[in-house]
Design a protein around this nucleic acid. Structure first.
Lengths: 158, 158
DNA sequence: CGCATATTGTTAATCTAGTAAACAGTTTAG
DNA sequence: CTAAACTGTTTACTAGATTAACAATATGCG
């Protein structure tokens, strides 16, 4: 998603001095912005850090201890089959544990460990700081506006 | 990426009546919005329609006829190896053709066919209409603001 | 109660998008 | 002329995600 440069076209073709169609589409612009922010996220957390989805899962487990895997999958908007590997990773790193729930032997409630809470708090601070810096050309107001507009899109689509 | 519901937590855990951390992150909100808009895009173009990246490629070829594959890959921000399948598909559907360039026997300039131009114009109108309707709870001003803010993010990240 | 239906976590197969590395052919620079 | 760079391409690989099936368990309802 690089920018359009003069040298990407051939000399002989004309260059309608216009904005490319693509930039009219919200979807295209959303994707480009997302790719940039996502790359920054990965840079922030480094090689051995969390993938975005793993970070998101940990965040929710810390905030909603005893959430079930199905519940977590619903919150994340993914299939519960896809969550298994994510929870495996978090449990493998000792950041949460699967615990059985007295009333229902099907479910595995997810509980963050102390380490999980600590590691999440650090990761959260790191990601926040990186976002802050990546978006330093946006004012606080602009960031708030952006969040509000994105929330409106979400409100429509679900 | 569904919404957070009371029933997704267990009865016994408390429910800090707070906004989930995740919604503080621009990256998370961008992704959620993007997923919604992308799903709408696919609905708009239907089963046999274009994937977003194929649509984007066609758009650029129509707007910049005689672009090379390398140039197009740069514009799209993908590797040129990844572009081969996309161009194959568009050529297979008769929407563009690879032509050789007099001065340079390495490159294949991409030229839209008449059908390509027509099909693109239709697809563009369809996608626009769907975006319009999906985002009908945003005013024209809000949409413009959103675009501008996304462009600012892009300006930072590249 | 008993039985159909639904839910939970899980595995396995599959799909898409995308990257990285290598390549032969060709062009450019010194 | 030779070394370096570029083009399109293939192949192999990874990540993220979906679907379908499954056994264990729970729920609803005659």
């Amino acid at each position: 998603m690089a920018s359009l440069r003069k040298t990407d076209r051939h000399a002989e073709d004309e260059t309608l001095g216009e904005t490319p169609d693509l930039e009219e589409f919200i979807g295209y612009n959303l994707k480009r912005a997302y790719v940039i922010v996502q790359a920054d996220f990965r840079r922030a957390l480094g090689e051995d850090g969390f993938a975005p989805r793993v970070f998101s899962a940990l965040s929710l487990v810390v905030q909603y201890p005893n959430v079930t895997q199905s519940g977590l999958a619903r919150m994340l908007g993914i299939e519960r089959s896809g969550l298994v590997a994510i929870v495996d990773e978090l449990e493998g790193r000792g950041l949460l544990k699967r615990t059985n729930v007295p009333g229902d032997r099907r479910v595995q409630a997810l509980v963050p460990t102390q380490k999980g809470k600590t590691v999440y708090a650090e990761a959260r601070a790191t990601v926040r700081a990186h976002e802050e810096q990546l978006l330093s050309n946006l004012s606080t107001d602009e960031k708030a506006t952006l969040m509000a507009l994105l929330a409106k899109i979400r409100a429509n689509g679900e």
